[in-house]
Design a protein around this nucleic acid. Structure first.
Lengths: 124, 124
DNA sequence: CGGTATCCTAGCTGATACTG
DNA sequence: CAGTATCAGCTAGGATACCG
């Protein structure tokens, strides 16, 4: 009777809604991707990896992800300061789904248009 | 040998990027949800179902979805005009993944904050 | 009915500082 | 190093009006 599967009138997307809002934002997916390849990563390290993102935005994205329970930050009271970000188990599970999505995307990749330039994050 | 699974440096999200841009936009998920419950649906019918969306935006979203190959429109040269929208097989496959996502979202539904209030029990 | 054409605004995004 | 504060630009989204 879990209606996650059989709902017909209520909105199944409700629960997704807020996560979706975060995931849909710029850079978020790329941040997650970078996190997924390493266990932990530091702020500027991540910033360099993304190259093009500003501190402002990166900090914002990370905060959102943290609030959604997808990322945890660990602060080391040192000087110079060190902060390590990592994915939560929740995010690890999401990772799997995103890979399904990636597989799906590759499978149906537009054979004609080819508008999906290999790298291009999605600027502008 | 398909590295959709094992990639470690390239961006797996690349292929997703443009679909993501569409899926991440407002209303899109809801449109898809409505389409998924019915085989075909007409413009204003959909508009009523979403209630709150403007013609401008709905038309835009539908066009985007069509371009992504997720939706097809069928125009009947009648008067008054009738246009039916439906999901493509590609979208049907995506539907499965989105349900996985919904399941994931429900599973990890914030037990504490409860900011994701299904129907918002408390205010603000 | 099923859209387009216009216009307007909130807010995301980014650049540029500046701190602990 | 790891951010915040501030300001500016652009654009997605919505309201409104109109047409085939």
């Amino acid at each position: 009777m879990p209606e996650e599967l059989s709902e017909a009138k209520a909105n199944a997307t409700c629960a997704i809604a807020d996560v979706w809002e975060v995931l849909g934002r710029r850079w978020t997916l790329h941040i997650l991707k970078n996190l997924s390849t390493r266990n932990v990563i530091r702020f500027n390290e991540l910033k360099r990896a993304l190259d093009g993102i500003s501190s402002t935005v990166l900090a914002g994205r990370l905060l959102e992800l943290e609030r959604e329970g997808l990322v945890t930050k660990k602060i080391y009271p040192e000087v110079p300061p060190r902060v390590e970000y990592s994915m939560t188990p929740q995010a690890r599970e999401l990772e799997v789904i995103i890979k399904d999505l990636a597989r799906w995307a590759n499978k149906w990749r537009r054979p004609d248009g080819m508008k999906t330039a290999a790298i291009a994050p999605q600027k502008k």
